[in-house]
Design a protein around this nucleic acid. Structure first.
Lengths: 213, 213, 213, 213
DNA sequence: GATGAATGAGATTTCATTCAT
DNA sequence: AATGAATGAAATCTCATTCAT
């Protein structure tokens, strides 16, 4: 008797509210500066309940990272159809990526900036997803190279490097979403920048450093 | 020898030591988690002296950002000779950039990750330098385009977009310095990825999105 | 027995304890020298709880001033019966005033000395109450003058001046409570000093400055 | 060689500047909140010099209190001529008192408010002067009583009480200098309030508490 | 006569976290 | 399922004070 004033709710839904709140607050202030007080208040619950469900601030952050990583990965996966040609797959994936980051800026901030700036434990969580993505892109580039004739000019480790560069460029553009308005526009810029270069490489035209120091 | 702190030094030198310590600690723990205690201890001075010289934690951070930004900018500027062709200038600049970030990983972390994840005031400091760099690269691409024949195919705003993408890709590769060992290697990967694409674009070969949704 | 802190009490009661402790410590050391540590310890709670309930040292001080001002005002108000003649009202009020200040020396110190010596914000809080008191005394003197015949000799602004002087004299005597032991004794001295003079004035006998510089 | 940028000055003058600065800063912020930094800066010297001359913050405060007390005492003493009648002496003294406090508000604040709110050591310093003043006024009232006929009605201890009340009323009015503009005006109000009452008492008209509780 | 360099100690305030109900 | 009451530990920052020159 007494006490409880808030609506009773199934645990799953409450947890979702808490993660939503955490993502928003962490994106706004940064992980360390984000306070459990603010998160609890924004979620509309008391602090002890947050601890009951999510255990600790670190665990809460980890849960956020995992949820956002899964959501982003899923969004891209759903957009790509393996039956289509590699460049089309890439285009679809890139578009889905920018669409997701544009629509979930807080999630992207948590994933890309916050997870990487607060110690190796969280960075590892985020990197797991990133590695998956790079591997996926690597496969895509490799199969595109196989489709072209000059494939033997691109050794595996170089393909991996290019995939990393492409993913990095995408991430950078996603970070600047406020500058580059629409997702499609960002995707087009990236493809122009990257694929034309990649296509060129696959035709055997490498760029080589100039001779004299 | 060892241990005993060297005492009584001129202010300028002490300030430098403090900034060195601050950059290291902030890179290690993140800005918010970095404690003034640890910074002071690493600098070999007492906390009050840090406050006397640098005023506050915020001001100390700002001073770090500015110093690192100036050093990086200067390193790149010194490597580029305007008399050479544009692609050579780009190569030299990119190499200097990776050399600097490889040799000063803490400074790069502070500049690229920490400054951008702890509120708009610090982000603005870092962005000022970034904008300069993008402008510089834009000029480079524009003059390269002028040297080629198909220059009229690339409108200004598109050149700016490509410059942003190139800078972003460079930043991303710099972030992964532990993976891509040497500076020259990173520079080569980036140039292969970027310049070949850019060169292709300048020959009039644009990439266009596929027709069907 | 003794020692062990009583735990888990309703907020209102805890707040009262905190204010009690704050008044005592501030009266003893002065506002600035009073430490939140000492206040919390005397209240039998931890510092964070003091901050949770009272917000800041400034707010705590303000709360003390308001509580003490209200209590003193209320003590005087309760002692005065408007149906009685003006001089009787004054006597009753003065007695209640000295009784209260004698029995709550810490509260009086906070109100009269500390509130006035630590910046305008607190001084304003205390002055609000004082202005009320002066207005009340002014009304009393005015109605006493109306009861006497020579009333027209005392213009309003002069009555206000006399009220201020009377209140000031009372405050001064209250400050020296350790010297003048009982409340009744202090009240008698004040009335002798003040009322006889006022009575004389109301009979038309003014004091006038001597002629020659 | 090196260092010294400030004008050389005889010690006495430097000390005076420091005390001036200390009085001003202490009046503004209160003793505890006043910082040696601000005092030194306002005096135009470095902190070590303040310590060399005045020894410690406590000693500096004590020196301030003593200087201001001596100055106020001297101002009043110089205005009073023992050859004149008692009421004239009182009037001259009261006028000098208000003139001084009006012209030296910081000194008065230090003396009357700050000295009394920061521990018994400083309060004792200020009380010494106050006791002198009360004794002086007591002698004045006593000799006035001797001049009148009804002198035997006023026992010594009662005369002392009245003197304390008069001094207290004067202090109170001095505290509110901003409200009561001119010194002469304040002096007149006080004399009207006090002397008329005292004169009445000396004529044998005592005020007596009413009978019924 | 005067100061730049430096610090030990302690101030207010906030945070993640738990207990009792 | 949910919360009001409570705290240990640590953060930023300031102050009176001294040393070496």
């Amino acid at each position: 008797m007494g006490g409880g004033r808030t609506k009773r709710m199934p645990r799953a839904e409450r947890e979702r509210q808490m993660l939503d709140a955490a993502v928003e607050v962490i994106a706004r202030h940064g992980y360390t500066a984000a306070s459990m007080d603010e998160i609890a208040e924004l979620a509309g619950v008391s602090k002890p309940l947050v601890y009951l469900y999510l255990n600790s601030k670190d665990d809460l952050f980890t849960a956020c990272i995992r949820r956002e990583a899964a959501a982003l990965t899923e969004a891209v996966r759903a957009a790509v159809r393996p039956s289509l040609p590699a460049d089309r797959q890439l285009w679809d994936g890139v578009q889905a990526f920018f669409t997701y980051t544009t629509e979930h800026p807080d999630g992207w901030t948590v994933l890309h900036l916050q997870a990487r700036t607060h110690g190796p434990r969280f960075a590892a969580e985020a990197d797991a997803m990133r590695a998956e993505t790079v591997a996926f892109v690597t496969r895509l580039i490799a199969s595109a190279a196989a489709e072209a004739h000059g494939s033997r000019d691109l050794p595996d480790h170089e393909i991996a490097g290019l995939a990393a560069a492409l993913v990095g460029a995408a991430e950078s553009l996603a970070d600047r979403t406020n500058t580059t308005p629409t997702a499609t526009q960002a995707a087009t810029t990236l493809m122009n920048f990257a694929w034309s270069g990649l296509g060129n490489l696959m035709s055997g035209n490498r760029w080589t450093p100039p001779g004299g120091g």
